[in-house]
Simulated assay, not measured.
Amino acid sequence: MLAFTIRRLSQSVVVLFVMSIIVFAGVYAIGNPVDILINPEADIAEQEETIRRLGLDKPIWTQYGLFLANALQGDLGNSFVHNLPALDIIFQRLPATLELAFLAVGLAVVFGVPLGMLAGLKPDSVVGRVIMTGSILGFSLPTFWVGLMLIMLFSVNMGWLPASGRGETVDLFGIPVSFLTLDGLSHLFLPAFNLALFKMSLVIRLARSGTREVLLQDYIKFARAKGVSDARIIGVHVLKNIMIPVVTVLGLELGSVIAFAVVTETVFAWPGIGKLLIDSISHLDRPVVVAYLLLTVTMFIVINFVVDILYSILDPRVRLGGAN
C-alpha cells in the first residue's frame, strides 16, 4: 500500500511539473502585455522600464526558472493589472465559483436521480422516452446558448429572476456566500441550473442504466416474492445501489464543474474564477492565467490521487494490477 501511494504521488508530481512547463510556455509566448498595460503614447524609456519591472526582459527559460523557484515557495507571482498576488485574487473569487459548482452538482442529483429512475422503471413509456430525449438535448445544446435562452425567458420576458451578478451576500466563517439570502439565491439559481444541465443528463443516464440493471438482480425478485412493497424496493434497494456509481462519477466530475464554469460565469456575469480567467486573458494578465491553470491542474491531480487511493483500499486488485 505504501509503495502504491508513493508511486501515485510521484506520478502526480511529474504531471504537475510537465503541465507547469506547458502552461507557462503557452501563456507567456502569446501576446505582449505591455501593449495593453501602458499608455500607447508612452515613450521608449517608459516601455523599457515597464518591461524590466514585470521581468519580461529576460529569456523565457530564465522567467520559468524564477517562476518555478517562487512557485515552490507558494508564490505564483503578482498580477500585472492589480499588482496583487495572483493566488490572493483567485482565492477571493473562488468562493463564488465553489458555491455555483456545488449547487449545480446538487441540482444534477436532485433532478437527475429521480428522472433517471423513472426512465429506468418505465423505459418504453412516453415519459421514459421524453426524459431520455431531454438528456440527449442536455448533452448536445451549447452551454452559452442555453444560458442566453434562460436569461431571455426568465429574466427578460417573465422578469422572475435576475440576469447577472451575485446579489446580496452574507459572511459565513468569514467567507461571503449568497445562498443564505433570498436575493442571493435568486441570482444563483439560473447560472447554477445552466451549469447543472450537462451533469444532470449524465446522472439521468447513469441512474437509468443502474435502475435497469438492479431490477434484474435476484435480491429484487426475492424481495417482491416476500411481498415487499414497490415503494420500499425502489426507495431502498434500487436507490441505494444506483447511488454508488452516481456519487463516484460526480465526485470526479466536480473538478470539471469548477474548472469549466467559465462559459456560465461569463454569460451570467458571475464573479467567480472563470470570469476572472476571461478578464485576465483579455488583459494578458499572465500571472493570474498561469496561477488559475496550475490551480486547476492541481485540483484534478488531487481528486484523481484521492480516488486512486480510495479504490486501492476498496479493491486490492487496483494496486496489484499497477505493480505488474
Rank of each mutant, 00 (worst) to 15 (best):
T296A: 13
V113G: 03
M117N: 10
V105P: 00
R7I: 05
L141E: 07
V246M: 04
M117K: 02
V23C: 07
P176H: 03
L197N: 00
Y219I: 15
E99W: 00
G165K: 12
L54Y: 06
R166Q: 14
L294V: 04
Y28C: 10
I30N: 15
V156W: 14
P176S: 06
D279K: 01
I234M: 10
F154C: 05
G251S: 07
P191A: 06
G26D: 15
V290L: 09
F268R: 02
T5A: 15
V13P: 04
Y28M: 14
L37D: 04
E168R: 08
L16N: 03
A163E: 05
L293P: 03
I22N: 12
V113T: 08
D218E: 14
F260E: 14
L148D: 05
F173T: 12
A119K: 04
E253P: 06
L141V: 15
L118K: 15
G112N: 01
L295A: 11
S164M: 14
P33K: 02
W160A: 05
I60Q: 10
F189C: 08
V306P: 11
V34Y: 03
V262M: 10
A25P: 07
L190Y: 07
T133M: 14
Q47L: 05
L66H: 09
F260P: 06
A269S: 12
N78H: 12
V238R: 00
A29F: 13
A108I: 09
S135A: 11
S164N: 15
N70M: 04
N157K: 13
D218L: 12
S186T: 12
V170C: 13
I136D: 04
A69I: 06
V302R: 06
P245E: 03
R212V: 15
L72N: 09
A42H: 05
Y292V: 04
Y64E: 01
F268T: 02
